[in-house]
Structure formats: structure tokens, C-alpha cells
Design a protein around this nucleic acid. Structure first.
Length: 281
DNA sequence: AATACTAGCAACCGCAATGAG
DNA sequence: TCTCATTGCGGTTGCTAGTAT
């Protein structure tokens, strides 16, 4: 059917996002919630298509994102899930809180594939490479031919349907929830304290892996239900940059407390507040 | 120091799925 | 049931930083 292209409208910007655009999008989404992506750019004053905004938010600006390399544990999870699900990156990502499908896909293509081949495993089939049929020098950028497993067992597919990513969705009438989410962003950093196993977190990172990888960003997916005895690092949010962002400090930090976060939010905070500070000033 | 090559990742493209009217 | 708008997903591209020559 004749679908109108999303991003070829005259005057719409493409390519890398600027700090100012990020700021506009973040400000808008934090104050208005996430709904009707098509309307977002107009309302937020952005010359982007809604799709681009959604992608930017989902893959980069979303506050519950974990940045940095995947831990060994996460990598193992990805491999296991890939064996079951194939290239269903969104399903795989749903089992790894704080990770995006794009990130996992990229990591798979750039790291894990290579690693598996070195181990003599065909990344497509997860079976031992056939010596004759599997020359070592396969091009890394395959043209999508590595997705032999598009048939997903029903049981497996069903597990993916309740994705954490879907639970992250919210609408304007859920804005308080979003604010609560922001208020509740407390990530565990004490590796001695076993992180409570949120069922939505699946088999993601082990608490003992490292302080950074242990902090599942389940804040969003779990609706912010954290155990009281966690001992988060607490970092004071400088107020100035928030004003520069045009954000209400109370909204971001909650009325009385500073944001509490660990590395999941380091990137977000850094990008949102400090790296772009001058650009936004 | 300059150039070529490579790896990593952000972003785009287009199709599929879904939902509303 | 059909059409169309919208969103989601997976594949792919292209830019950039890092490394090798």
C-alpha cells in the first residue's frame, strides 16, 4: 500500500543530532510524555520527522539507558538469546534492561560475530563452523544473510511479547509516572548487595560482574520499585545546567532529593547537562 | 606528518505490524 | 473488511576516531 515516506519532507533535517535538538527533545518529552511521535517534532520545535525523534530518544536520550560496552554476562545472554530468537534484536534487548536493540545489533555485528568465528562457531547457526564451508575471512558486513532463524518457537516468541521496552512506554496521562521514574532513578552500586531480581530483567547482568554492569536499569521497566536497603551512590545535581536545559529542577530531581544514579545515567547526565552545557547556554 | 585502512556506532531506510475510522 | 496513518523493527549506510603503514 502506498505509504508516505516519513522523512523526505522538504525542510526536515537529517543526520547527526545537535545538542540543541537533544535538549529540545528531552525537555519536551520530560514535560509532556511520550506519545504521538508524529506530533513530537512540531510540538517540540524540531525540524525532524517523528521517526527520527523516536529513534534518537530510544537509542540515545532515554534516561534508563546503560551506556558502555556490554559485560561478559550480557554478551553471553545476547548469544543465548540470539540462538533462540535469531536477529530479533528488540526481543533480545527486552531481556537486557538499559540496552537498545540497535546497540545489541551493533555489538553483535562488530564484536560477537568475530568472537564466535574465532571460537569456531558459526554466528548464524551457533553450530561449529564447517571447515570447508566456512572460510575464516568472511566479510564482516554481511548483507543480512545471517538470519536463518526467522522461525521462532511459539514459546520463545511468547516470552518476548512482554518486553521491558514496551513497559517503558508512556503517554501524556502517565507523565506523573515518568516523573516518578525520574525521581526513582536509583541504581545499585554496592556489588556486595545482591540486586533484587526483577522478573522483567531476565538473565541480564550478574550483580557480581562489576559495579557498572550490575546496575540493571530496571527503574523504568519495573516502575521504580527498588529495595530500601540498596545503597546507591548519591550525586548532587548541579542546578545551573538544569536551568540551561530549561528543566524544572524539582521535576528532575524530585522535590527534596538529588538524583541518585550510577553509570546508567552517567552518560545521560553527561550528555544532557555537561557536555552540551556551552551549546545550550 | 600524512595517508590509508579499519572498527565502532549513530542514524537512516523501507517493510511489517498494528490500530483507528 | 478495507484503507490509511502510525509505530516498531531489522538491515544497511556513512561518518568519525583510532590504528597501521
Amino acid at each position: 500500500m502506498g505509504r508516505q515516506p516519513c522523512c523526505d519532507k522538504v525542510g526536515l533535517k537529517k543526520g547527526p543530532w545537535t545538542a540543541e535538538e537533544d535538549q529540545k527533545l528531552v525537555s519536551f518529552l520530560l514535560s509532556n510524555g511520550q506519545c504521538c511521535w508524529r506530533a513530537v517534532p512540531k510540538l517540540a520545535g524540531l525540524l525532524r520527522c517523528g521517526k527520527s525523534c523516536r529513534l534518537r530518544w530510544t537509542n540515545y536520550l532515554r534516561p534508563d539507558l546503560k551506556r558502555g560496552l556490554l559485560s561478559d554476562e550480557e554478551e553471553k545472554t545476547v548469544i543465548d538469546l540470539h540462538e533462540q530468537l535469531g536477529n530479533r534484536w528488540s526481543k533480545i534487548a527486552a531481556q537486557l534492561p538499559g540496552r537498545t536493540d540497535n546497540e545489541i545489533k551493533n555489538h553483535w555485528n562488530t564484536h560477537i560475530k568475530k568472537k564466535l568465528r574465532k571460537m569456531g562457531i558459526d554466528p548464524a547457526t551457533h553450530k561449529p563452523l564447517q571447515p570447508a564451508a566456512a572460510p575464516l575471512q568472511q566479510p564482516l558486513r554481511s548483507t543480512g544473510g545471517d538470519s536463518p532463524e526467522q522461525k521462532v518457537p511459539a514459546a520463545v516468541a511468547a516470552t518476548g511479547s512482554q518486553s521491558g521496552a514496551e513497559e517503558h512506554m508512556f503517554c501524556p496521562d502517565e507523565v506523573p509516572t515518568m516523573m516518578q521514574l525520574l525521581d526513582n532513578i536509583i541504581l545499585p552500586c554496592d556489588v556486595d548487595e545482591p540486586a533484587p531480581l526483577d522478573s522483567s530483567c531476565g538473565t541480564a547482568s550478574s550483580p557480581a560482574e562489576s559495579s557498572s554492569s550490575s546496575s540493571s536499569a530496571s527503574a523504568a521497566s519495573s516502575g521504580g520499585g527498588f529495595e530500601d536497603d540498596w545503597l546507591p551512590k548519591i550525586m548532587e545535581w548541579p542546578v545551573e545546567p538544569m536551568f540551561m536545559m530549561g528543566l524544572d529542577v524539582d521535576v528532575v530531581t524530585g522535590p527534596t532529593s538529588a538524583w541518585e544514579f550510577e553509570d546508567t545515567f552517567n552518560a545521560y547526565q553527561r550528555i544532557a547537562l555537561f557536555d552540551h552545557q556551552e551549546a545550550w547556554a
